[in-house]
């Protein structure tokens, strides 16, 4: 078996559910590579949407910024940010979105605003950006983040973007239209969410990783899915595309 990095595994795993999607809301970095991998491995028509106002981007090289002109060249359409958020995202036309965060809790709620108390924060983070509306409106959300206790906390310090709040029914009660988080893709395992309660569960272990190792890196007693699987490694083709075409300089694969 070929060697691969933890980031290469995350990218390959994130690309798998995207093979079914028609439209995906993308950020820069790992999510961007995952979407482009999905486009080149079975879903050539996947439309990449960037909040900077680009629909159907076909980036020729790795974008360095969400406003990178490479996202515009060759795209299907370009529009004001307000229109993209309003007519595509709030209009219900985004199937899947990818998000990251500084903290995530057992219901998939995300924090990218402050560490500590809002009034006197220990660390002021960048803020919601587009994440909040994306988490509210996308058909499904895939969360990509590394597994550690600092990130996987029982309660987020600040609920920037909604997962299932305090349980699946809560989204409905608050009038939140989108489908909520579907998977959390980490460098050691894959989580999904209980279809009734909306609580995060260990759904898949990467080769060589144990349940104990995952539990030791999560800040609450995390549940295990009854259908736990071993997640297959990246294919030779996945690795070749990532290394030769999608991120040849290894900016995000390392």
């Amino acid at each position: 078996m070929t060697d691969y990095t933890a980031s290469e595994m995350m990218i390959a795993v994130a690309a798998r559910p995207l093979r079914e999607a028609r439209t995906v809301f993308v950020g820069v970095g790992l999510p961007n590579i995952a979407c482009n991998l999905a486009r080149r491995t079975g879903n050539p028509d996947l439309a990449l949407i960037y909040e900077s106002g680009v629909f159907g981007a076909q980036p020729a090289r790795l974008p360095l910024s969400i406003g990178d002109p490479t996202l515009v060249s060759g795209a299907t359409a370009v529009m004001p940010m307000a229109d993209l958020f309003m007519f595509y995202l709030q209009g219900g036309l985004v199937d899947v979105a990818l998000l990251g965060a500084a903290q995530i809790d057992r219901f998939g709620n995300l924090n990218s605003t402050v560490i500590g108390d809002y009034a006197a924060p220990k660390v002021r983070l960048p803020g919601s950006g587009g994440a909040c509306e994306i988490a509210i409106n996308a058909g499904q959300v895939l969360i990509i983040t590394r597994l550690n206790k600092r990130t996987f906390v029982e309660n987020v310090d600040f609920l920037t973007s909604p997962g299932y709040l305090s349980g699946r029914a809560q989204r409905e009660a608050f009038g939140i239209p989108g489908g909520g988080p579907q998977q959390v893709i980490t460098d050691r395992c894959l989580f999904d969410f209980d279809p009734v309660t909306g609580e995060m569960r260990i759904a898949g272990l990467y080769p060589g990783v144990t349940i104990e190792e995952v539990k030791a890196n999560v800040g609450w007693d995390v549940a295990v899915s009854p259908a736990l699987v071993e997640v297959p490694p990246p294919s030779e083709e996945d690795l070749r595309l990532m290394r030769e075409t999608l991120d040849p300089d290894g900016l995000y694969r390392g």
Binding site: Q90, S161, L165
Partner: peptide, 29 residues
């Protein structure tokens, strides 16, 4: 949020005091 702030400006541009949206529902934001 990014959408929220640009929609707030859109409301001003339209001459209306607010816009009804799904913005920020259920959050500390």
């Amino acid at each position: 949020s990014n959408a929220g702030i640009t929609w707030r400006m859109k409301a001003a541009a339209m001459g209306v005091p607010f816009l009804p949206t799904t913005s920020m529902l259920g959050t500390d934001t």
